[in-house]
Write a protein that binds this DNA or RNA. Sequence first.
DNA 1: GTCTATACATCGATAGAC
DNA 2: GTCTATCGATGTATAGAC
Lengths: 192, 192
Amino acid sequence: MLAVARGAFAELGYSGASMNEIAGRAGIRKPSLFHHFPTKEALYVEAVGAALAPLGELVAEASRSTGDFGARLDRLSEMVVDYLSAHPETARLLVREVLDSGPFLSAGGKQTVGAILGAVGEFLEQGMRAGAFREQDARHLALSIIAVHLFYWAADPLSGAQIEGSIFEAAEVASRRAAVVEHVRALVRVAT
Amino acid sequence: MLAVARGAFAELGYSGASMNEIAGRAGIRKPSLFHHFPTKEALYVEAVGAALAPLGELVAEASRSTGDFGARLDRLSEMVVDYLSAHPETARLLVREVLDSGPFLSAGGKQTVGAILGAVGEFLEQGMRAGAFREQDARHLALSIIAVHLFYWAADPLSGAQIEGSIFEAAEVASRRAAVVEHVRALVRVAT
DNA sequence: GTCTATACATCGATAGAC
DNA sequence: GTCTATCGATGTATAGAC
């Protein structure tokens, strides 16, 4: 049910996805949907939170682990690509939310997002201090890396414009994964 | 008038920005707005087209010029950053449009966007053939570069989360411009 | 060109039967 | 828990006076 809402909000946006539309996709009527969630906002906030949490977990895992920074970075890149490609609505939903400064960010989600952003920055700065990543502005670096990850999946009408199938097809995902690993490496200028 | 609409659509999205809201911002009433544009869609398509055109011109200029690929790439990066930072609504509006597969893309704008994307790809491939850029998938490279450019300005609540002022302030723009030039260079792996 | 007034659909949300 | 029916507000768009 949250999954249905996530899909609708991702596809149509917060104001574009009506409770009627979401209920219809879930195979029930509008008042039944209001029985499970007090307001549209509450439904939306839960849907975004559920979509964001696994990404925070991936970042935390990369921060928590030890060893070679380059290998940890590559692994994080791959895990994020795999997650975003396996859940096609997620990137779109998250990008929409930051564009809107939407109900999720307004309702305490700013802390969750800030924590994830901070963890990414912390990881990058550790790598710089260790000499594995080139010294540079960690904030701009983190934002560019996040951009590379999210934009491609969120903008699939643009990303898939010149290919025949879907960007979420296995072969295309593998192609993007390889490209992202390479691009993120280049951005941090990992010593190879 | 188009500028007002651009701002409203960028801030609130296509379905979130009502004709009443736009008319109010322009200092007139709703029917007066309908006198200038036959439908909401027509107003929106014109607004997006006007926002996109200058970016296409910048890419065309970079393609058209001759000389060192690294220098042309740096100049293009700087020009794009300057344009997007000087028109704070633009990136948000364009990102929204690709997320929505909105009225602009549906109404023939797909060709305009495809042409720009193609020109970027062409420029990158020329640089690769010339040995100035590292050989790689030009499509994925172009999308990552576009992501680095657009996402930062579009997601300003995220981009500006850890700084005190606005990301559109002069000092912050200069900081981002330097970072973007560096990041795009790293992505293409320009030989320095 | 801009206005008041309005038509008609859909929005989020609620009441109350089953 | 799900439904029909409905409330009041707001959406796009139009009619017609000035």
